[in-house]
């Protein structure tokens, strides 16, 4: 078993790929585009390093020319993964992370920021692994930002949404989604502990309708302070949810994240040999070498650091955890 940690780095000045397209609600393009461009950047960095080391002797070596990669092409010659990824014990960082680089960490001390992290538990992953995944996800965020805690940790469980045009209907349908027992167990065993140990100052849930939220509130010790919802029109909050949130003092926040943020097939495409893939996986069709085995995404975490009192987003990014069953 190899564990993979995928990362985007700080995407806040990452260009048009993270800008919402018209009608592009609830999309995971921000995650996939920014992973892809970070893989590419890592490979280009490696090429630059090569060019820098022999470039002085040979002024027109290729760093700015033919060997440059871009989004649309698949380079004829793949760089060996070892040049732009790194291994720590049984964990492969894709790409390798220079934790000391200036693109990590925050400009000012962490108290100056509102830090939000959102952990996405993915569908089909055993509930028993969630405590470990939550720990892992949060620790990567804290390490990337050089912070000791996040201000708000939001948990996204698989399969929850507000679907449909009618808000009452959406709220009702929401009640039948997910698995209350699993979610409550996860909350108690994996999430509250992050609050108690001081790693997350406030907790939140995502896409909880009034019924699910009511049940959760009855059975947990650390209550969510926030419920993130995505509605076609955020002016039409289901009235029962609005009422419950008001009574219980839970803030209803807007989000536009996808329900299934990193499907297995998407991950394979990102790391495979196809167009725009990173070429990390072995390709049985062409016989190209690479990692072999069954690749399963396990969790995704998104993080944002906003400068308090200034409304400026300074750092935003994602980590994703996956396992490669290479036995």
């Amino acid at each position: 078993m190899t564990k993979l940690i995928l990362s985007t780095g700080n995407i806040i000045s990452g260009g048009p790929s993270i800008i919402r397209k018209p009608g592009g609600f609830r999309s995971n393009l921000e995650l996939t585009n920014s992973l892809r461009s970070n893989f590419l950047a890592a490979q280009e960095d490696h090429l630059d390093t090569l060019a820098d080391s022999d470039g002085d002797l040979n002024g027109n070596s290729g760093a700015n020319g033919a060997t440059h990669l871009d989004d649309s092409s698949t380079p004829a010659q793949r760089l060996p993964p070892s040049t732009w990824t790194s291994r720590e014990n049984d964990t492969l960082y894709v790409p390798s992370i220079d934790w000391s680089s200036e693109s990590h960490g925050l400009q000012e001390e962490p108290a100056q920021y509102d830090i939000t992290a959102k952990i996405f538990f993915l569908p089909g992953i055993p509930v028993s692994q969630r405590p470990q995944h939550a720990q892992e996800a949060l620790s990567h965020v804290l390490r990337a930002l050089g912070a000791s805690a996040v201000d708000l940790l939001i948990i996204s469980f698989p399969g929850l949404s507000f679907e449909g045009d009618c808000e009452w209907e959406a709220d009702k349908r929401n009640a039948t989604q997910g698995n209350d027992e699993d979610e409550i167990a996860t909350w108690v065993e994996s999430v509250e502990v992050l609050h108690r140990t001081g790693l997350a100052k406030k907790l939140g849930v995502s896409e909880y309708g009034s019924e699910k939220l009511g049940k959760l509130l009855q059975r947990v010790q650390v209550r969510p302070a926030v419920n993130q919802i995505n509605l076609k029109n955020c002016c039409n909050v289901p009235p029962p949810l609005l009422k419950l949130a008001k009574e219980e003092g839970i803030e209803l926040l807007v989000h536009s994240d996808c329900t299934d943020i990193l499907p297995k097939g998407t991950l394979r495409e990102l790391l495979g040999h196809g167009l725009g893939g990173a070429g990390l996986l072995a390709d049985p069709e062409t016989g190209a070498p690479g990692l072999e085995g069954d690749l399963t995404p396990q969790w995704v975490v998104k993080y944002t650091a906003v400068v308090r009192d200034r409304g400026v987003i300074e750092n935003k990014g994602y980590f994703a955890g996956a396992v490669l069953d290479d036995q």
Partner: peptide
């Protein structure tokens, strides 16, 4: 946006003093 597609690894974060 900045010309390169790769500000994340080398660019410095915004808000620098």
């Amino acid at each position: 946006f900045p010309p390169a597609t790769r500000p994340s690894r080398r660019g410095s974060p915004s808000g620098s003093s």
